[in-house]
């Protein structure tokens, strides 16, 4: 496979496609351009981005581009499907705990100050946001600001992979470990994907076998920083307005669409083992997931084991609760 690497969306992005190099190059270029345009549209770290314009317009109707309207519509849909555990309106909370600039800058500039006075306050619910399909306008209530980080990254990766598929029968866009896979490489029945050890990134925990579709992982061990003497991470629990405290430290989701994988990886990580099955079952979306806890036990359902680990051995598990593609 031919590959192209670039840095975008604050992460390393890999484009790979099977085919003749000269035929693939236009597809690579188009996909690269799409990713860079998507980043400049959806980033919250640039005042010039369309997302920042939308956030500044809270209280007034905002005419959105088709791309921004699509992603905000998806975000609202998944807010309801996850019972609010996926909530893009936690941006004020993210800033309050110190994630007020890109992770690259946060690491360069050292610990963020602790704003003890900025206690979490009441903020409007995402269900109060109004979307008008007819004229693509968005009305954010006063005090609301959106962070579309993960869901936008997944959406961009999937669109870019579909662009590559116009010049290749097998392609992948891997954005920092969250990826969308199209077709199958010659001679393979599934894509091999390694699950990294969240506590020892130099090692892998297990090798997965994945059908074409999306893979995404959320973890509390990657985007971490100190705020005064407090340890912070970027997975905010919308119920507490603070970094989530969960029995799991990472959740990997395999789903038909990248935005689904991104959303449910985050929601199930926040939910933890007590609520994850309920969230997955009630969402009506078909996906598989594997979760890793502090002891490096890997949790999932039997479909996850069969579909992702390439084994159909009967472990004697209980009846399944999670619908899997």
């Amino acid at each position: 496979m031919e590959t192209v690497q670039l840095r975008a969306m604050n992460t390393d992005v890999l484009l790979a496609a099977e085919g003749q190099s000269d035929q693939l190059q236009p597809g690579f270029e188009q996909a690269r351009q799409f990713i860079q345009e998507g980043e400049s549209r959806f980033t919250r770290f640039s005042e010039q981005s369309e997302l920042s314009e939308l956030n500044r317009s809270a209280g007034e109707r905002f005419h959105a581009s088709p791309d921004l309207f699509s992603v905000v519509s998806l975000a609202r849909r998944f807010f309801h499907l996850t019972r609010g555990l996926f909530d893009p309106s936690i941006l004020p909370d993210l800033k309050r705990v110190g994630y007020d600039r890109s992770m690259d800058l946060l690491r360069q500039q050292g610990p963020a100050p602790l704003f003890e006075s900025l206690l979490a306050g009441e903020r409007p619910s995402l269900s109060e946001m109004d979307l008008d399909e007819a004229d693509h306008t968005i009305l954010l209530p006063h005090g609301m600001a959106l962070d579309l980080g993960g869901i936008a990254k997944g959406w961009i990766a999937e669109q870019a992979a579909n662009i590559l598929s116009s010049v290749s029968t097998a392609s992948v866009v891997d954005a920092g470990g969250d990826m969308f896979l199209v077709g199958l490489p010659s001679g393979l029945e599934q894509w091999p994907v390694e699950l990294e050890d969240p506590l020892q990134p130099e090692n892998i925990l297990i090798s997965l076998k994945v059908n074409p579709g999306a893979v995404a992982t959320s973890t509390v061990t990657k985007r971490v920083w100190k705020q005064a003497d407090k340890d912070r991470h970027h997975i905010i629990d919308p119920r507490t307005h603070a970094p989530a405290i969960s029995d799991w430290i990472s959740v990997t989701v395999v789903a038909p669409h990248a935005y689904e994988a991104e959303v449910f990886a985050k929601a199930l990580l926040i939910a933890g083992p007590q609520e994850a099955q309920g969230i997955a079952h009630n969402s009506g979306i078909q996906f598989s997931y594997l979760a890793v806890d502090q002891a490096k036990k890997i949790w999932g359902n039997q479909e996850s084991l069969e579909n992702l680990l390439g084994t159909s051995q009967n472990f004697g598990f209980k009846p399944l609760l999670l619908p899997v593609a």
Partner: peptide, 17 residues
């Protein structure tokens, strides 16, 4: 330990970000 990559398919690793 990480295995060696396949001859043609790039090594894909999901890790969170």
């Amino acid at each position: 330990s990480s295995p060696q990559p396949s001859t043609s398919v790039p090594m894909l690793r999901t890790r969170g970000s």
